[in-house]
Write a protein that binds this DNA or RNA. Structure first.
Length: 525
DNA sequence: CTGGGGAGGGGGCCC
DNA sequence: AGGGCCCCCTCCCCA
């Protein structure tokens, strides 16, 4: 009997211990579940906030679309596609309206472009002036999503939901505007294949956002066909803005959407052409997306650069445009990750730095990293007496680059590049010239990855593939693909050595030999 | 093997 | 569009 009593007590103890253990486990699980629920609720709240922002954005876009009165929408849009004309990844663009805009680039959810994982950014642009103007605190909410090879339209789906597939595949996000003091800004986004540049300007009366709608769709014509630049006479490039030189209060000048657009001349039609975007043609919410294949880009560039120049004598017009492109397969992230920029992309990185310098230094003129890269010429800077003769051409070029605006030829070349003050006779030439600064190369080789800023360069490059060497030496059997190479070669026969070292009197047929010589023999130079 | 000079290829940019 | 100049890169030859 006592034994049974002991067993019963032991069983009771064991049962109590088991119950306690079970309760403990339940409590632990409950704590875990509670934590998970809390986290899920937080996530839900965050997602809900995002959804609200998106809805707000869409509603504002609709409001803007129905308010064409004081909002001029133009645009500057440049894209580029690579990889055989197939665009991969999203194309993004944005507008930073003015100085009154505060930017918030919220943390990306994931940034791993290279591995093809998705990237999602939420960029919020708020305009204090817009708020003051009663637009309900206009703000831009940009949500970016870039998938490695995913259909770039996906980003649009995210942003607009029901609008997916409705709007033409041209993308520009522009929100926020209200009357505000004249400001100028230019925002450039670095993307691998596509590169978008939007530029907004405001004057004392209106905010104008340039907006260019890009044609999409395949264009199977050749580059040369697509790039019919028209007669040599320069035409105004619509993607430019240029201001009267020396005008203390330059008017806002904007691009027009089509060559056939009526120029809104303001005070002077020769230097200001503005086109209001037809609200009816504007994509809903001003949010579109662009798919630029190589051909599209060329088509676009044709439209941009084939338009003639305004050849207004007696005025100097400053072309202020910054369009920066990153060569190659740069990542599509907003913040360019330099780790994605390989050796071949150093130029793009320099351009980025340059772009930054532009934004921080309003007096940037001749500090282009491209010039730093291409024009470093330690010898020519200190070659002594012979340099006066041998480098006259360089000096002339330096003069034109550095002092074109004041060199007295403004009558013939009224168009100035604001970035280097070089003057040009027409706007198209400025556009082409500014590719030096921007790195834009609209002419792509169909047989390799090379791209060129000028059509002639592409044509010349084609000889690399064809093996054509049309420039033959009449004194030997040598032939060359470059005319300049033939001319250089002829010095072999003539024995001409015009480049003399000022230190040892040794002479060379070419400047490059002299430079190398002085670097090696007279390193103090 | 190494360094210097010669030469060609080819891209950048301007006229 | 073509010509031209400049530059960098690379290869080759030779002392």
């Amino acid at each position: 009997m006592v034994f049974h009593t002991q067993i019963a007590s032991i069983m009771e103890v064991l049962a109590n211990a088991a119950v306690a253990e079970i309760c403990k486990l339940i409590d632990d699980e409950h704590a875990v579940f509670s934590l998970e629920i809390t986290q899920s609720q937080k996530e839900n709240r965050a997602l809900r906030r995002k959804l609200q922002l998106l809805e707000l954005k869409v509603s504002r876009e609709r409001v803007l679309a129905s308010r064409p009165s004081s909002v001029k929408i133009l645009d500057r849009y440049r894209g580029m596609a690579r990889d055989g004309g197939h665009l991969t990844g999203g194309h993004r663009s944005f507008v930073k309206p003015a100085e009154h805009v505060s930017w918030r680039d919220d943390q990306p959810i994931a940034v791993d472009e290279g591995s093809g994982t998705s990237t999602q950014h939420v960029i919020v642009i708020e305009s204090a002036d817009a708020k003051a103007a009663g637009y309900g605190g206009l703000s831009l909410v940009k949500q970016e999503r870039t998938e490695g090879e995913e259909d770039p339209r996906h980003s649009r789906d995210i942003q607009t939901g029901e609008e997916a597939g409705v709007v033409p595949p041209v993308a520009t996000k522009i929100i926020a505007t209200s009357p505000q003091p004249r400001t100028r800004c230019s925002i450039t986004e670095f993307g691998g294949k596509p590169t978008a540049v939007l530029k907004s300007e405001t004057d004392t009366e209106t905010l104008t956002v340039t907006h260019r709608l890009l044609h999409t769709g395949s264009d199977h014509r050749s580059d040369t066909e697509r790039l019919q630049l028209g007669p040599l006479g320069c035409h105004p490039a619509p993607g430019s803005e240029y201001l009267l030189y020396g005008n203390p209060n330059p008017r806002t000048v904007h691009s027009h959407r089509d060559a056939g657009d009526v120029l809104e001349t303001g005070n002077d039609p020769s230097c200001s052409y503005t086109t209001e975007m037809d609200p009816g043609n504007m994509p809903l919410g001003l949010e579109t997306q662009t798919y630029l294949s190589r051909g599209d880009w060329n088509q676009y560039s044709s439209s941009v650069y084939s338009e003639g120049c305004l050849d207004k004598k007696g005025e100097i017009i400053v072309v202020d445009e910054v369009t920066v492109k990153v060569e190659g397969d740069a990542p599509l992230t907003w913040n360019v990750d330099e780790t994605h920029l390989g050796e071949g992309h150093s130029q793009g990185r320099d351009l980025l730095d340059y772009r930054e310098s532009l934004e921080t230094n309003p007096y940037v003129s001749t500090h282009s990293p491209l010039h730093k890269l291409r024009r470093r010429d330690p010898v020519s800077m200190s070659m002594g007496p012979s340099d006066q003769v041998l480098n006259s051409n360089d000096r002339a070029r330096a003069e034109t680059q550095g002092g074109g605006a004041t060199s007295g030829n403004s009558k013939d070349k009224p168009f100035l590049c604001k970035l280097c003050n070089k003057s040009f006779s027409c706007l198209q030439k400025v556009e082409i010239h500014q590719r030096v600064h921007t790195g834009v190369k609209p002419f792509s080789c169909t047989q390799c990855h090379m791209c060129f800023a000028q059509a002639g360069d592409l044509k010349r490059h084609h000889r690399v593939h064809t093996g054509e060497k049309p420039f033959s030496c009449h004194l030997c059997r040598a032939s060359f693909s470059h005319s300049s190479n033939l001319k250089r070669h002829l010095k072999v026969h003539t024995g001409e050595r015009p480049f003399a070292c000022t230190h040892c009197r040794k002479r060379f047929s070419e400047r490059r030999y002299l430079r190398i010589h002085q670097q090696k023999k007279h390193s103090t130079v």
